[in-house]
Design a protein around this nucleic acid. Structure first.
Lengths: 139, 139
DNA sequence: GTAGATGCAAATTTTTTGCATTTAG
DNA sequence: CTAAATGCAAAAAATTTGCATCTAC
């Protein structure tokens, strides 16, 4: 069995199982639905059921391995690999192929304090998302 | 029958019906689910079915009257009144009561061009959302 | 009168749950 | 050996659709 992420899973308190490994390897910089993952694994002849996929993806999200994303015109959850280090989100999202590019800098860092003061909200995190078409999908 | 929004609906090509008016009056600065709307109207003894609510909310969203919003920990669509004028979104959202405060300024206006150039994306719109607890919910 | 709106019931889609069995550590 | 993970089937939750009837204009 694959064990290239054995330690990685173990540090999260997760067992290193084949299904978990398959799902993990399916995830990319694109934001995938549970069905996308299912179909990708089906194509590779990996047998897995939807409930397992959902359970794994939800665990991944709880442990900060993945992140949930919703697009405005569909009623389903997409999951994308999450950058380890930070809890706020700055990304470019292609609305056609669902590729996600993480922005390295936080352009609104300084703003949070100001807005917090002005609004009386206790701000916990923020998301800055730019939507559009990636280079490929512009064709 | 209410007709305070008669002209408003007509300019959108929508008939001025009681149900549409009820749903419209239910919407606020909070982001509500279809069920929230249903329950609010039930409480006012207004009889309406879910399919009608969904149809109206989707129409409102198509016509820019409302806007869809997803929270990270629930799998359902929320609808909020949308500011007429702009297509991008800058808001403060209370994760507990779902109050939404629209920010008047766009703090990332200048950035879009830069990111577009650096990324080769054709950026169509963006969303900047700060999540936290509003003054009431902090108590 | 007619296009659009609604109610109702049924279907679809997405996600979750219970439980018996299996497996990683 | 034990807690966690999986498969399977069934249920639940959210949303959509078809169609007959009704209503705004």
């Amino acid at each position: 069995m694959h064990d290239c992420h054995k330690d990685f899973f173990h540090t999260k308190g997760l067992k290193n199982t084949p299904t978990r490994d398959w799902v993990y390897h399916t995830l990319t910089h694109k934001a995938l639905t549970a069905e996308d993952v299912y179909l990708a694994l089906l194509k590779q002849k990996k047998k897995i059921v939807f409930s397992t996929i959902y359970r794994i993806l939800e665990q991944f999200s709880e442990h900060g391995i993945t992140e949930r994303l919703f697009l405005d015109n569909e009623n389903k959850t997409r999951y994308q690999l999450k950058e380890e280090h930070d809890d706020h989100v700055h990304q470019l999202i292609c609305t056609q192929c669902h590729e996600v590019v993480n922005l390295s800098t936080c352009p609104v860092e300084g703003l949070t304090q100001d807005i917090q003061k002005a609004s009386n909200f206790k701000i916990v995190y923020h998301q800055l998302r730019f939507y559009g078409l990636c280079q490929k999908c512009r064709a």
